[in-house]
Simulated assay, not measured.
Amino acid sequence: MSCDEAMLIRKLFRFENAHIVRGCSTRRCSHSIHGHSYKIELLLEAHSLDHGQMVYDFGLLKGGAFTLIDAFDHAVTLWTGDDPAYLAAMRQHSERWVLIPVSPSAEQFSRLFFLLVDAVLATTALRNGEGDVRLHSVIVHETETGYAQCFREDAENPRMGRIDLESIVFAPAITAQWSDPALFERLKRARAD
């Protein structure tokens, strides 16, 4: 290992979510709403340790990062490009939904969560001597046998579809349960600056 390589740490989150992935080759997935037990791995990296001799205190992820990932639990994720009648029906009949600008595939979820968590990390006050800690990658396990991993280059790659925080909408029933209802608005403002 050279001195240039960073140490990695991993934090795992879980949630249950439903979606339709339009345009995929499997008819069951592209024409029927279905759900998955997702596992989200956040991998953080740094070249130095904080005063507690850690890359990053996992407790700091219990705020914004957990809140945003948990927003997808027991929700249906909707793609803005889907049929307007379907979108309206799902929003009418489901209290928990999230509207996103890309299809809710594991690949796009990994990009979406990368951008969300990266925004949280950028706005988190570091007070314990944390060094150059940053998000290394996000892995989204959609099934026990398949996952997608997103790196910074993927998250920001316009050829994979543009994801702006402004284009993500959380159902009012979701944001009403947040301990900090202004969390997402604050992240959007910080990202725009």
Score class of each variant (00 low, 15 high):
Val21Glu: 09
Ala88Cys: 06
Leu68Asn: 06
Ala6Gln: 09
Leu121Phe: 09
Tyr38Leu: 07
Glu95Phe: 07
Leu115Ser: 01
Phe170Gly: 13
Ser94Glu: 10
Lys11Arg: 11
Phe13Ala: 01
Leu44Glu: 08
Leu61Cys: 02
Leu61Arg: 06
Ala85Arg: 12
His34Trp: 13
Arg159Pro: 01
Thr77His: 02
Leu60Ser: 07
Arg159Glu: 15
His141Phe: 13
Asp73Leu: 03
Pro101Met: 05
Asp70Glu: 12
Glu16Ala: 06
Phe72Pro: 02
Asp154Ser: 03
Met160Asp: 10
Pro104Asn: 08
Gly146Ser: 15
Thr175Glu: 07
Gln53Asn: 11
Glu5Lys: 10
Ala125Gly: 00
Ala89His: 11
Ile69Cys: 03
Thr145Gln: 14
His36Arg: 11
Cys24Ala: 11
Gln149Met: 15
Leu135Ala: 07
Ala148Ile: 03
Lys62Met: 05
Ile174Ala: 05
Arg96Trp: 12
Leu121Trp: 08
Gly35Asn: 05
Leu78Ile: 15
Trp97Gln: 03
Ile100Gly: 03
Val138Thr: 09
Leu87Gln: 12
Asp193Lys: 10
His51Val: 12
Phe151Gln: 14
Gly23Met: 06
Phe58Met: 04
Gln92Gly: 11
Leu126Ile: 06
Arg111Ser: 03
Gly129Arg: 08
Glu5Asp: 08
Leu8Asp: 04
Ile100Thr: 11
Ala6Glu: 13
Pro181Met: 00
Glu16Ile: 00
Phe184Val: 03
His31Gly: 04
Ile168Gly: 12
Ser179Tyr: 00
Gln149Ile: 15
Pro104Gly: 06
Cys150Val: 06
Pro158Met: 06
Leu87Asn: 13
Pro181Ile: 01
Phe114His: 02
Arg14Tyr: 05
Leu126His: 13
Asp132Leu: 08
Ser94Ile: 03
Asp83Lys: 14
Leu68Cys: 08
Ser137Phe: 07
Leu61Ser: 05
Cys29Arg: 07
Leu78Asp: 09
Glu156Asn: 06
Ile33Ser: 07
His47Asp: 11
Thr77Met: 04
Asp164Trp: 04
His34Asp: 12
Met7Glu: 09
Gly35Val: 08
His141Tyr: 15
Thr80Ser: 14
Thr123Gln: 14
Phe114Ile: 00
Gln177Ile: 00
Phe15Tyr: 12
Leu78Glu: 08
Ala182Asp: 10
Asp50Cys: 02
Pro84Val: 10
Glu153Leu: 09
Glu166Lys: 14
Phe184Asp: 01
